[in-house]
Design a protein around this nucleic acid. Sequence first.
DNA 1: AAATCTTTGCAACAAAGTTGCAAAATATAA
DNA 2: TTATATTTTGCAACTTTGTTGCAAAGATTT
Lengths: 141, 141
Amino acid sequence: MEKETAEILRKNHLSITDSRIKILELFKRKGNALAHADIEKQTHDLFDRVTIYRTLQTFAEKGIIHSIPTADNSVLYALCKDECSEGKHADNHVHFICDICETTYCLDHIMIPELQMPAGFKMKQAGLIVEGICKNCSAKK
Amino acid sequence: MEKETAEILRKNHLSITDSRIKILELFKRKGNALAHADIEKQTHDLFDRVTIYRTLQTFAEKGIIHSIPTADNSVLYALCKDECSEGKHADNHVHFICDICETTYCLDHIMIPELQMPAGFKMKQAGLIVEGICKNCSAKK
DNA sequence: AAATCTTTGCAACAAAGTTGCAAAATATAA
DNA sequence: TTATATTTTGCAACTTTGTTGCAAAGATTT
Ligand SMILES: [Mn+2]
Ligand SMILES: [Mn+2]
Ligand SMILES: [Zn+2]
Ligand SMILES: [Zn+2]
């Protein structure tokens, strides 16, 4: 597990450091999207705030994680699929935020549908974010 | 024009003040989405930062403007259509951000398509934001 | 016009994010 | 392995963005 994680860093020409390993494994373990604050808490202040900012930025540039637009304008990040690489993100899937537990999910298998643009507008990318009640929270009542 | 604007405030049970009139007319004049900073500049520091925050919040609550999710997590606002009212936003249209001029448009006539959710996930609302090149910028080259 | 209720600006604060730089850690070369 | 070069980290200082309490100014109602 730890080896796999190091391998991802190596592939991306990043030096293997404690913070990068720990933060990357946190993403793998949690599975869902994380905010800067989440990471700070979950790593028990093992790393400086600044280091976390810089790590997230680096991961995003390399295509290891992608950022997720939210309505309440908090920045969230989640692991990218393998197709993403340096500068080229291919995370054109739908994101889901739960009203109740506030968890944000990558719905990796739900793609953003084709869209007709008005004349003159050229679409390059799109982000679709759904808000509602998640599987867990639906079950709980 | 000024009268119309005051009428909107009156309809929403808001007292008619200088800042509210000026900010609302700015939205009408510009037509596209505005950030807090835009408003600060365009009103030439006529109003306090705090007043602008509070005005935007009030307008959003009343359904006069709606906020727009963005990838770079800046908060943007744009005028709502008439169907929106206190607490009930009906702005389920697509938003477009131009890569070049950075203008954000409400594509009022492009609705968010129906979506199949995974089992257990209940959709309540959705936001779709498209990034690309706008009409103006396409023409300019 | 006076009384009442609402909004504004200011000050102080809190949270979020950025930058420069020396020390520590990692990678590379010998 | 050890020495050297490169990269990353933590700290401090700072900026930018957003929030809150409160007295003064402004709007509305009587
Ligand atoms: Mn995702
Ligand atoms: Mn809109
Ligand atoms: Zn939930
Ligand atoms: Zn443009």
